[in-house]
Design a protein around this nucleic acid. Structure first.
Lengths: 189, 189
DNA sequence: GACAGGCTAGGACAATCGTCCTAATCTCGC
DNA sequence: GCGAGATTAGGACGATTGTCCTAGCCTGTC
């Protein structure tokens, strides 16, 4: 049980930062959900910022693992890109309630002018680089990165609007169109 | 000078809510920028929520005025839709720093589970309805609303990613592609 | 020039925030 | 089973929050 308390704190903080925002989540909230006392925090993290860093680094690690799994699990680059696109569907319940975990955290930290903003933005970087690889493998050449960013921006926009409008058909329609577009690119190459 | 102080407070709060977020903006911040005392607030607004409502209602009024100006200023529906799309370019400096004012406020209020969230979402509704009208005038029929939401989501995604990645070329490229797509729809009808 | 009412400044208020301190408890090698 | 070090609970701290109260100022009317 050495690492357990620390990793539990990170997991709970991760979820609460997502649900309620970083700034709005207090140590009291996290402590009560973890089941530890408020003052005990500073044995594991010397500040709230250090906790945030740990949360983001855990997200980076989880994202790397997810991307590796997608890369290993799908045969074609187009199927891999569609695996990314489908995340909007598979996480729809959470996205409907709290938006995209990556986008909303980066937007909040930007407004707070928080020192960990560059670290948070690296999650976007992981997705962008991975998608760029897939579009390159699809034979898109110089167009690989622009198209990766297009897919990334598309998913952000869909998540934001889904959170606001709560329109299920909108999401399904957009996901289908986007997958069709990717498969069209694959067929043309 | 009857209404002036109240409207000054709203204008300052509007900007600060955008720059730093609603929750992170305190009465002390607003008061010091307006140049009034902190305790004097409650003569104009009986709570922070009432101030937020006034800010959102001012945004709704400003949005209606903007949309009317675009409707009056452009001949074709396609030109009107492109006027919307170009807002990402004309507001690029602010968007680069703080994201989209509409999207970031709605995302924050959703996480706070704030009672004014439905009111904030109505700003999205204004844009969605206006864009739907333009696509209808373009002869899109049943496709008008889906395409309006697509443009709305697109602008949200571009704003979010621009705020995170700070990539100027990305924005210019996306705006150009989106305008070309709209003009293509117009030519086909 | 007295008076009423809109407006303001300044501070008090309880609550909550992140942070820190200390003493008690637990765990484990010897 | 003893002692060192990791872990914990609980509370104190200064600062800040939204809110409220009160005494005074300003403006305009009779």
């Amino acid at each position: 049980m050495r690492q357990s308390t620390r990793s539990t704190i990170i997991a709970v903080a991760d979820q609460l930062f997502y649900e309620a925002g970083f700034y709005h989540t207090s140590f009291a909230d996290i402590a009560s959900q973890v089941g530890i006392s408020r003052g005990n925090f500073y044995h594991h993290f010397k500040s709230k910022e250090e906790l945030l860093q740990a949360v983001i680094e855990q997200r980076l690690a989880a994202t790397r693992q997810l991307l590796s799994a997608w890369a290993a699990g799908s045969e074609s680059p187009a199927a891999r890109i569609c695996a990314y696109i489908q995340i909007v569907i598979s996480n729809r319940t959470q996205i409907k309630l709290h938006g995209c975990p990556v986008g909303t955290l980066c937007a909040e930290l930007a407004k707070l002018e928080h020192p960990s903003l560059p670290l948070a933005n690296r999650v976007f970087g992981l997705f962008a680089d991975w998608l760029t690889e897939q579009f390159s493998a699809l034979g898109q050449g110089q167009q690989a990165r622009p198209r990766a960013l297009k897919v990334l921006a598309w998913s952000q926009g869909v998540a934001t609007l889904y959170n606001a409008l709560q329109d299920d058909e909108f999401v399904e329609r957009e996901v289908e169109e986007m997958c069709n577009w990717v498969q069209g690119l694959a067929a043309a190459s």
